[in-house]
Design a protein around this nucleic acid. Structure first.
Lengths: 191, 191
DNA sequence: ATTATCTATAGATCTATAGATAATGC
DNA sequence: ATTATCTATAGATCTATAGATAATGC
């Protein structure tokens, strides 16, 4: 039943990848270690050879989810630097993103739960947020003092997260769409 | 062991009040029915005389938490209508609110978890959000088209929630305070 | 020989229910 | 007599560990 070191490393990556999606979809308490391992094609007991605890996996899964999300933005900026902000806002506040929690922004899916986690999780998350802010800053229109640009970046990030979070929680499709649409109109043109 | 109808009604209210605080503090999965009843001064088994299920309580606790939160804003508007928006933003994005999840805004504490709940919970939440938006609209500066005012209201609400949520999730106190401060500066003066 | 994974299980939860108890309200 | 609450427990989780197994890597 033993596999090669290479395969073991791949198995570990697979666990993190599955977890990062399942946690965003169901929340940290909405999915157990046994089911995560099953989704990764492994058995329950093998988990603790890769991670010290579920919390340990949560920290890593949050980190990679943030990195992945930031990577998408970086790619948009690289592709078309001139209207990057507009592209980021349009995709972030799209119906597709709203309806795909599992592959979307970990902040919108998990931020309040992360706030309740221990220091290792929050530390890893904070690093991911800093990186994400650095990337978003590049997408913000220049031609203003650096301090102002930093402010606009943070305000845009908060606006994006708040908008998506409210749109998802709401039961009425019309209200959910109105929230998204207003967010797109106001955040896409900078602050 | 039986109590009067009046006392039973009070007990029910107490359960909802305790639950609305504990849920905001620990999340829906972070506190069990037995512990909630203990905090309310009752025993586990008595719960199901008052509520059909934990989900049932979640819906009601979300609703009253939203109503309570909206009531605070309404009071601020009544007290000083001229600078109500600024007062709302200052209190919402205060350190005190950030550090008191249990008595604070249920959206910032629970929105992503609410999004994963069934229709009854989300319906009750949606009603609470609509009411809250109606109240916040009154605090927005007038002197502009109604449509624009509605947009500014929704954008402000999303900005408030996103700002508080990020500030709480972050591990570094300086970054957490920077996020709050920028939110206060930008949202207090309308959009 | 080492070790990645497996099976099996301990021990601690959690929601919900059954049936007993005792005070209220007719 | 009704009913709000209590005790006790069923049944289903969940995290984590112990010990067996079998393939890798020396």
């Amino acid at each position: 039943m033993r596999v090669s070191r290479e395969q073991a490393a791949k198995n570990r990556e697979k666990i993190v990848e599955v977890a990062s999606r399942e946690f965003r979809d169901k929340g940290f308490d909405g999915i157990g270690v046994a089911d995560l391992m099953k989704s990764a094609g492994l058995t329950h007991g093998g988990f603790y050879g890769h991670f010290a605890s579920k919390d340990d996996l949560i920290a890593e899964a949050c980190g990679t989810a943030m990195d992945h999300s930031t990577g998408k933005w970086a790619k948009l900026i690289e592709t078309s630097p001139e209207n990057a902000l507009s592209l980021i806002v349009e995709s972030y506040l799209s119906k597709a993103h709203r309806d795909d929690n599992a592959n979307g922004c970990p902040m919108a899916a998990l931020a309040p739960e992360i706030a309740r986690q221990g220091n290792p999780v929050r530390e890893r998350f904070t690093r991911g947020l800093r990186d994400s802010l650095d990337v978003l800053l590049e997408a913000m229109p220049s031609g203003r003092p650096g301090e102002r640009r930093r402010e606009a970046t943070l305000a845009t990030m908060a606006g994006l997260v708040g908008t998506l979070v409210l749109s998802r929680a709401v039961n009425d499709p019309d209200l959910a769409e109105e929230i998204l649409a207003i967010g797109r109109a106001r955040l896409g043109k900078d602050g």
